[in-house]
Design a protein around this nucleic acid. Sequence first.
DNA 1: CAATTCCTATTGTCGGACAACCGGTTTATA
DNA 2: TATAAACCGGTTGTCCGACAATAGGAATTG
Lengths: 241, 241
Amino acid sequence: MTETRFSRLNRAPAYKLVYDTIEADIVSGRLADGALLPTEGALAEQFGVHRSTVREGIRLLEQQGLIARGAAKRMVVAAPKTADTAARASKGLALHGVTFDEVWAALALFQPEAARLAARHMTPDALIALAAINDALGQQQSSEQTVESAFAFFQAIAAASGNRVILVQLQSLNLLIATSLARVIDALPNASARIRDAQKNLIIAFEARDADKAAEWMRKHIDDLRRGYEVAGVATDTKVV
Amino acid sequence: MTETRFSRLNRAPAYKLVYDTIEADIVSGRLADGALLPTEGALAEQFGVHRSTVREGIRLLEQQGLIARGAAKRMVVAAPKTADTAARASKGLALHGVTFDEVWAALALFQPEAARLAARHMTPDALIALAAINDALGQQQSSEQTVESAFAFFQAIAAASGNRVILVQLQSLNLLIATSLARVIDALPNASARIRDAQKNLIIAFEARDADKAAEWMRKHIDDLRRGYEVAGVATDTKVV
DNA sequence: CAATTCCTATTGTCGGACAACCGGTTTATA
DNA sequence: TATAAACCGGTTGTCCGACAATAGGAATTG
């Protein structure tokens, strides 16, 4: 048996170090949002590694959403946006093959509380935005637009929380449900009207800063969503894709 | 001006196609969890691309958490685990530099509802697990162990939901708070005892399947956590790192 | 049969190369 | 002169080939 006085030191591969270094620069702001990432060649030279190695690190950054392809192919720094983080979280959940049931239960659990919070934090601007979304819903007809409006309304409520953690988690749920929402709205001719009424009630509660009422209307709205799925004949154990 | 009858077709780079293809195989189960990914050379041959290109695709899969370095350097397929998804979501939020305030508000909003749900879905096994965690908390002294137990208790409640969406979202919050929890427990000598009592009350509520009481005790528990931070002198706008 | 020594497969990294493509510049044209 | 076409340099996407390090297994040896 050889001596084992030294613990296995696991050198991280160079591409990982490239990732870590650039990540730190982006998070700390040394690489500002929107800035062009240095060219692969320049990075390779700075890090003293081969361009292939740099590219592997860049792929990690890309998947993490910290950089994105810019106009001129050059990679641009993309300081994390809540919307992107939410999308990434949604994708993670979608990969689990979560069912509509699960997403709905999460919505039922969290959205009423989110509405309660929104009622307390509601600003005039946010109220105007909500009203505008509701107005738009009243004037349009295509189901895509209806889905878009319903989604935007939920997103606006999430934004009203003024809390990035809550915002991201709610947006994740909204994204998960949005993909299947179209099916319900397509199947139910009066869906748009029901959604519009629910939104109106919520807006009234928000205007009055009545957290309890907001939570209650939201609960009804979410319940109604589920009934919509049942009536539309969408199996609740359908995987959200 | 040249004719523009054809819309710009943007071919995804080959490394992205490699990623997409393997991702689909993992999600669909064609590549089972724990299976060894084919060697880079084999993949390059199958896809008809160069090994460098395959490696870039593999880096994307790695960052997405769909594969991981196995024992024998070979990459092994890692079908998404909820814990990993939660960790990834937490990291995304951490990159935003979210503050303790925000995480706490999210906990205050969601955990009582989660406790309510847990009370309804509580199984004998889950109850035993919770009691075991509580017992362990009573016997240990090091603050690391205390943090570990407090964290485990929250995780167990999240698991009791029986809902992967809720599970992942709660676990994300737990991870975010856990990093800073140690500071409070270190600073407050009676923290462990207070946590133990709170857990006991929660367990009693769970045993009685009393959702309202569970939610109420959880609310107090979370409130107490905040007081702990205040007493310990941790600024609430501290970034969760 | 256990410990040790090859041997082989695979990854991590490197060097170099080239086509495609984008933005900007120069040149030709109305 | 204004505009369109041709050109050019820089960058990315991809490829080819190569090699050191290392882990696992096979062969060898005691």
